[in-house]
Design a protein around this nucleic acid. Structure first.
Lengths: 218, 218
DNA sequence: TGTAATGTTTACCAATCGGTCAAATTATCG
DNA sequence: CGATAATTTGACCGATTGGTAAACATTACA
């Protein structure tokens, strides 16, 4: 037998793991910038440093590569939300969630852009994951937040939109990095930018969610 | 003379205006979903309901079409920020800025996605506009906000990151519309979604920016 | 109306696209 | 070692890409 396609093998060899890793790494580079339609196998092959047919030996189609990449990244991407603890102190939980999301935007901007690209295109490849596992996780955490508002631990607010606003503000620093850099210019460049953003967002969300004193008569 | 290209004409005819409008409308449809690289002239031609060479009669290249589209959209897109009034009441200015941005995300989601796509790709076609006119406008408005914080009218905060967070939270509802829909599901669907988002964001930013009472001794 | 400028389309081009194939090369293991 | 399976690649395929040439159709206007 000449072609026992890598995907069909029972045990994955050392070479398979290495090469698949190498390919997905390159694919992340390319897909995260140009999206699915705008990326070509040749680009990925060049970045990966291997021939195009070699890529297609490990992933049968461009779509299979994209699929595998999204699946792998989606799990780790939701890690911070999963860590959200119902029993913790609301203020510190929200604070550390923002921190973690912001760190991910800083340390894994390509992953953030990969998803952003997918969303912009209407999520043709991941709509099921959104409506399934993602929605389920968010529903669960939204319930936690709602219990906090009902207990008077934080201000009354829509938990879903709270989550959306944390997602958007933090991921903005990865997805719109060019714009952020252009607007801030050289004067605010460097490592300080991350700390500035963290400080601002923590202040905004913590103060914005503090329980308001009931206005007394007069 | 056989080919006095439309672009070279001094006076624009009625047909030129109509067709260019028609083309840019279709281009917005396509570019906003697939980005520059992922979009094809054929797609745009089909949406516009005209032949490919006919498009290229009005815009010499795909890049020229994209360029013209961005230029036209960029101006109106910054309108809400331009309306930001230094002499107004801080709270109501911020509130109405959020409102306006959110309305734009609702009414012009394609324009929002067009920019998002461009940013994700590293803004290869608009970096100059970002570093020039955009930065200048933001610098100006940031100074207004800074004067408000110094006067004690709103809480001390970084004005740039405040603007970023308003941009990201509002545009999120256009750019990540699929995700928002998937997570909220049917129960929160419909027109109410917009009002929910507006209520949440106004609360978050207004309360988050209220001046904090100086903690007195003990 | 005539005619010159403007607008539109069919046919086409070279380059690139996703993907295949068979031959060549390398790793694995008895 | 030998042989079998796993890996890699150059050559290639039909379809699609951005764009052109030139013939054809329509409009504007004297």
């Amino acid at each position: 037998m000449t072609i026992p396609r890598a995907a069909k093998t029972q045990r994955r060899t050392r070479i398979q793991e290495e090469k698949e890793e190498q390919i997905l790494e390159a694919a992340l580079d390319v897909f995260s910038v140009s999206g699915f339609r705008g990326s070509t196998i040749d680009q990925i092959a060049e970045v990966a440093g291997m021939s195009k047919p070699n890529l297609l030996y490990y992933f049968r189609t461009k779509e299979a590569m994209h699929r595998a990449l999204i699946d792998r990244v989606l799990f780790t991407w939701l890690e911070p939300l999963r860590a959200f603890d119902a029993d913790g102190n609301p203020e510190s939980e929200i604070r550390s969630y923002i921190r973690r999301k912001l760190e991910m935007a800083r340390d894994f901007p390509r992953e953030s852009r990969l998803f952003a690209n997918e969303m912009l295109q209407g999520a043709p490849h991941v709509e099921d994951e959104l409506k399934g596992p993602l929605k389920q996780l968010v529903d669960e955490k939204a319930e936690v937040i709602r219990s906090w508002t009902k207990a008077g631990k934080i201000a009354k607010c829509d938990p879903y939109h709270l989550i959306f606003s944390i997602w958007s503000t933090t991921q903005h620093y990865a997805d719109f990095d060019v714009q952020v850099r252009a607007v801030l210019g050289q004067e605010h460049a460097g490592a300080g930018r991350f700390e500035d953003a963290a400080r601002f967002l923590e202040q905004l969300f913590i103060d914005g969610l503090k329980v308001k004193p009931v206005p007394s008569a007069s």
